[in-house]
Design a binder for these strands. Structure first.
Lengths: 140, 140
DNA sequence: GTGATTGCAAATCCTTTGCAATCTG
DNA sequence: CAGATTGCAAAGGATTTGCAATCAC
């Protein structure tokens, strides 16, 4: 079963209806293998057919996120971006001065995730996280 | 020296000009002792005088953030919020399903911060962070 | 005086919503 | 068939920008 099929199956189990639009949207995210801003998802879907409205995309993504089937990242410039849960984890360090982005091995977050799970009983999504700060060159 | 004065002094040292508007904005954040959305900062400044424009507030806050004099948090609903650096640290765990917010002792982040500093030479702002996930009641 | 900063108003951009029409199960 | 979902167009809201006037140094 492909990733797209899995997500669709999950949705059906949860009582959602599967429309061609939803399928296209899910496929676009799943096959991209990356974190996509809404804008890109819309463009990807448009390539297949022009019959999907932006509002539908927003509504579908919100639903997928609430169901835990995609990750959402709204850190960058107030824009929303989504990726399928199985998309490889990422940790970005963003320098607030030079805007440089450093990619880090996300395993670094494992201890924190464990502590939150044990101590707060909270299952944190740390797979697509951006942290702000200053890189070495921008520190005085 | 008060917190407001310190920030102003830093700005002057960096070559920025100190206008009454900037002073009011800085004072509003510093004296609030909390994380404020732009909206609240605007309201607080308006209470003193109606002579400050929203655009000026946005421009000033962006500048303060780039200078590292305030923290910025744009996680919640795409809105920007700011707080002075000395405002006590916070860590919020936000349940993406029930929207509940759990407050956690931010010391929990100290090990992560240390690792980022040593291994990536990155000084991360982890003092006002919101992490998303599922709380115990929303996990199936 | 000079360049930085502000106010104003308009423009952008992202996202949400109401409602009638259309589909899915 | 009934209720969920979509498209459309309009509204909403946050943030940004151009430019002339003003102010800090």
């Amino acid at each position: 079963m492909t990733l797209t099929e899995e997500i669709i199956s999950d949705l059906r189990d949860s009582g959602y209806r599967i429309t061609p639009q939803r399928e296209l949207i899910i496929r676009a995210i799943a096959e991209s293998g990356r974190h996509m801003p809404v804008e890109d998802i819309y463009a990807a879907v448009q390539e297949q057919t022009s019959a999907v409205n932006l509002a539908t995309i927003y509504r579908t993504l919100e639903m997928l996120w609430e169901e835990g089937l995609v990750h959402r990242n709204d850190l960058h410039e107030g824009k929303l971006a989504y990726a399928v849960a199985e998309h490889g984890p990422h940790l970005h360090l963003v320098c607030r001065r030079c805007k440089r982005v450093i990619d880090v091995d996300p395993d670094i977050l494992a201890p924190l995730q464990a502590v939150l799970r044990e101590r707060e009983q909270f299952e944190a999504d740390l797979e697509h996280l951006s942290l702000f700060g200053l890189c070495i060159e921008c520190r005085d």
